[in-house]
Design a protein around this nucleic acid. Structure first.
Lengths: 235, 235
DNA sequence: GTAAATTTGTGTTGTACAACATATTTTTCT
DNA sequence: AGAAAAATATGTTGTACAACACAAATTTAC
C-alpha cells in the first residue's frame, strides 16, 4: 500500500488534500482557501451523528475516524474505517438526506469543512472534482457490498481475519513492517467484524496461539499474513 | 438468449431517461442521441458478470434487473434490485475497476449503452449529470449500508419482512394496490434476504398463516402492511 | 404425452455463535 | 494514593438457523 498521499507533520493544510486542491485552477484554489474552515477533533470526539443534517463536505486532513451505524439493541456496526486524506460524511450531502451513520475520531483529527454551496460551485467549474467524488463513492460502495457478503456468509474466524487484513490495507504498518498502525478496543474490532466482544477476544487469542498474530494490549502485529489470508478466504 | 434482434413496437427511448437526457443542453442532447446504443435483454439473460471490464454507462430504460455477488460455496447474495429508469453497472466504471457483481434481467429489458468517453464528455460540459450520478451513488451506498446492518443483525422474520417492504418500495403495487409488481423465485427472495431457500419458503408460509401476506405461486399480496413493518422493525 | 429437471414444501439434526455469568486486569477519576 | 469504572478474559448454556433428507408440485424438454 502506497503512503505517498499520506499527510504528515503537525499542520495539515487543505493544500495537501490532493483529491480536492490539486485538481483546481488558480482562481478556484483561491476561492476554496478563503471558503473553508479547519477544525480540530480530540480522540473520541463525535464528528457527526445519525439524523443530523450535513453542513457541507468534510475532508479528513489528518487522524483516523470510524463511521458506524446503531443497530438492533444498541449493537453498533462499524461500516467504515477512514485514514487521511479522505472525504467523510459526504453521502448525506449528495443524497440530500440526513446522516444515516455517526462518525467519531479514534485519534486526534484535523478536518476541513467546506460549505455545500462552495463544493457545488467548484464542481460546476471543474469536472475533475466530480470525478474524484464519484471515485470515492465507487470505491466505498464496492467495499460496502463486499463486506455485506463476507459479514453475512463468513464464519467468525474468517470475518476477524478479513477485518485485520482490511485494517492493514487502510492504515498500513508501522516502521517495523509488522505492527498495525491503528489501536482499537476489542469492542471496536468486534463491531467492525460483526461479532460479540467476547468472541472477538476469544478468536484473537486463538490467532495468537496459532502464531498468526501477536498481541500486546491494543497493539497487534501480523506474524503470518499468508495464513491470515487463508483463514479469511476459507470463511 | 439473443438480444438486439427483436422488433418491438414502442421501445423506450433515451429521451425518456430523465437522470441523463433532461439535464442536457441541445447540443449535448444531439451528441448523446448519436452516441449510444439501445440493447434488448431477454428474461434471465446476463447483462454483465463479475470480473468483466465495464464497457460504459448502462441505463435501464425498461424492465427489472437483479445485481448479485457470488459468495461462499456459490451462495449468491442479491445486493440490489433495480427498476427503470436507473443507472446500472456504473460503480466499476467510476472506480476504474472490473465489475464486482453480476447483473441479470429478471424480465425483458431495454438498456441504453453509453461509451465511457461519451459520458465523461457530458460530465465535463454539464455538472448536473455529475450531480445525478453522485445522487445515485449516495442513495445506493445508503441502502447498502442499511442492509449490511439488518442482514447481519435482524432475525429471519425481520429480514424477510424487510425484503418484502423493499420490493414494494422499489417496484410498487399492481393496480389492485396490494399485489407486488414483481415475480421472484423463492430462491431469489432467499438470496435477497440472506437466508436459505428452505427458510424463505417456511417463513413466507408462516406469514401467510398470520394473514400478513397472501401468496399464489410467485405472486405476493401484502395483506397487512402495518404488521409487516412491525415484524421488520422488531428484527 | 411422458420423462426429466426444477421449484416448492416440510420435517429432523447438528452446530456456530449469541447470551449470560463471573473473574481479572487496566484505566479513569477524585 | 485508593475507589470506581471500564476493558479484557474465559467458561457455560441456549437457540436460531444452516444443512440435510425427502416428498410433492410445477415447469421444461423431447
Amino acid at each position: 500500500m502506497s503512503n505517498s498521499n499520506r499527510l504528515t507533520g503537525n499542520d495539515p493544510d487543505i493544500k495537501n488534500f490532493p483529491q480536492l486542491y490539486n485538481v483546481l485552477n488558480d482562481e478556484d484554489k483561491e476561492f476554496l482557501l478563503s471558503n473553508h474552515k479547519v477544525k480540530h477533533y480530540a480522540k473520541n470526539e463525535k464528528i457527526y451523528g445519525e439524523g443530523e443534517k450535513p453542513k457541507g463536505l468534510l475532508c479528513l486532513g489528518s487522524g483516523k475516524v470510524k463511521v458506524y451505524k446503531d443497530g438492533i439493541g444498541g449493537r453498533e456496526q462499524i461500516v467504515r474505517m477512514v485514514a487521511a486524506p479522505n472525504f467523510i460524511g459526504y453521502r448525506a450531502l449528495f443524497a440530500e438526506d440526513v446522516h444515516i451513520a455517526s462518525a467519531v475520531a479514534i485519534e486526534d483529527c484535523v478536518i476541513f469543512h467546506i460549505p455545500g454551496n462552495v463544493i457545488f460551485k467548484l464542481m460546476g467549474s471543474n469536472s475533475k472534482v466530480c470525478r474524484n467524488l464519484l471515485k470515492s463513492f465507487a470505491v466505498e460502495l464496492g467495499f460496502t457490498r463486499y463486506r455485506t457478503v463476507s459479514l453475512t456468509q463468513k464464519h467468525i474466524r474468517g470475518r476477524l481475519a478479513e477485518s485485520l487484513l482490511f485494517l492493514r490495507e487502510i492504515y498500513g504498518f508501522k516502521d517495523d513492517g509488522v505492527t498495525l498502525d491503528i489501536q482499537l478496543s476489542r469492542e471496536d474490532i468486534a463491531n467492525f467484524s460483526n461479532m460479540t466482544t467476547s468472541n472477538a477476544i476469544r478468536t484473537l487469542s486463538t490467532f495468537v496461539n496459532e502464531k498468526v498474530i501477536a498481541v500486546d494490549g491494543r497493539t497487534i502485529k501480523i506474524v503470518d499474513q499468508a495464513k491470515l489470508e487463508r483463514i479469511s478466504k476459507l470463511g
